[in-house]
Each structure stands twice: as C-alpha cells, then as structure tokens.
Design a protein around this nucleic acid. Sequence first.
DNA 1: ATGCCTAAGCCCCTTAGA
Length: 265
Amino acid sequence: MKIVTYNVNGIKARLPRLLEYLAEERPDVVCLQEIKSTDETVPAAEIREAGYGAIWHGQKGFNGVAVLARGQDPVERLRGLPGEPEDDHSRYLEAAVETPAGPLTVASIYLPNGNPRPGPKFDYKLRWFERLADRARDLLAEEGATVLAGDYNVIPRDADTFSVRAMAQDALMQPESRGAYRRLLAQGWTDALATRHPAGGPWTFWDYQANSWPQDHGFRIDHLLLSPPAADRLTGAGVDRDYRGREKASDHAPTWIELGMTLSS
DNA sequence: ATGCCTAAGCCCCTTAGA
C-alpha cells in the first residue's frame, strides 16, 4: 500500500493537482500539510467524490493538516500536540486506518519552519519538536505500525540539499534542528527515504524563486518516519517529482512509501 | 545585500512561507 505526504501549499489553489494525483496514483493514505483552509472551507465534497474519506485540522489563511484514506474514513486519534495550550497553529493530526495487514496509525505533521533564526520562530520550532518527540515516544511504546508523515522543515544530511552553502544559515539546516530530528530517530524510528536513498536526497521541495525547479535546486524536508513494525513492511520509497513540474504546482512534491501487505515473520 | 515567487486575507497591499 502506498502512503503519501504532500505539502499542497493551499488546498483550494491545488485542488486540480491533488485530484489528478489521487486519480492517477490511487494512494491508500495521504497526509496533507498547509491546506490553508478552515474545516468549513475545505473542498470536502470533491475529495469524497474522488473516493477518499478525510479528516481535517484546518486554520484560516495558513497551516492546516489533513489525513485522507481511500475507501474508508480515518478515525481521529489526536488533534494538535499537547504541551503548549496557547499554541493555536494547526500542525498535527493523528488517525487510525485499516490495512490488509492490520491497523495502522498515521500522523500528518507540519513542523514550524523556524526562520528567521535566531528568534521566537526558531525557539517555537524547537519547542514544537520536543512536543512531537514526547508524542512519538508514546506511539512507539504501543508497538504498533505507525507512520509519522509530514513536512519536518529539516534537511537531515548535507547530501539532502543541492547546496550546503546556500542553506547554511537557514533554520532548516541548523545543528539544533538536525539534533532534534536525530534524537527523534534515535527513539527507534526509521527515516524511510534516507534508508532507501543512502547517498542523499531525493529532493521533495524546490523553491518557487530563483528558477529553482529548472535547475533542480531542491532539498529533502518531507519525511516519513516508521515504527519498527512499519519499517519491517517497507518495500519502497520515493518522490513523485513530476507533479512539481506541472501547471500551478505546489513547491513540494508528493513523497511516498510502499508498505507490504503482509507482516513479515 | 536583496529579491527572486506564490497563496490567501482583504480587497490591490500585507503576511507568511522555506
């Protein structure tokens, strides 16, 4: 089964691309970020007509995450991360879905960008990271199949960017950001794309500016983290990068994993 | 050193993104 994370950068502006993707690839589960819509203004009918059940954690203007599942309604498990009651950003939505190999937990994650750095936005990013790590620890303890999918706004390795120099001062590549990501992985999570692409990349994001896409100046910031029972089922991982080159594209491309249908012994 | 481009709110400029 195919599980996708896709930062759409506005679900209303991206609806033709998203519907096209659902029709062409028929992914089983899709985690969306930056829907930039409230629960009321999201194009729910079109998604449902495409054959997908969906739950949303929306917000007016920016942020917003969703979980879509083909032929079923995801069951909401958690909406927003605990630990900072005054945080009103919609960046986390966790759900349970059914698979032929049993239940699967998926989370759609939109981690704060953190620029400019230093400053309150960078501090917020690091605090949010710790709150995510607390939740991730609880999920691992359940010992089920879990996928933490989303836009982490972290370039984990130097080989995950077209230019270390261009990004050196960016919040996406700071030691604190990488350290938080590495500590999360050290809990026992598998970075699916990194495992399948040890030499670096593939890119998941190309800036709209500076002619980045034609020059392939991208980096890898959208990640799917797998609990051990999920990692045991990993059979492939990649980026559907041609969607980045289509008309009215998001600056991110859909990033996916393939999980085997049966549990390995 | 700066802006490069895009979406959305609000209404044609500002905020935010990465």
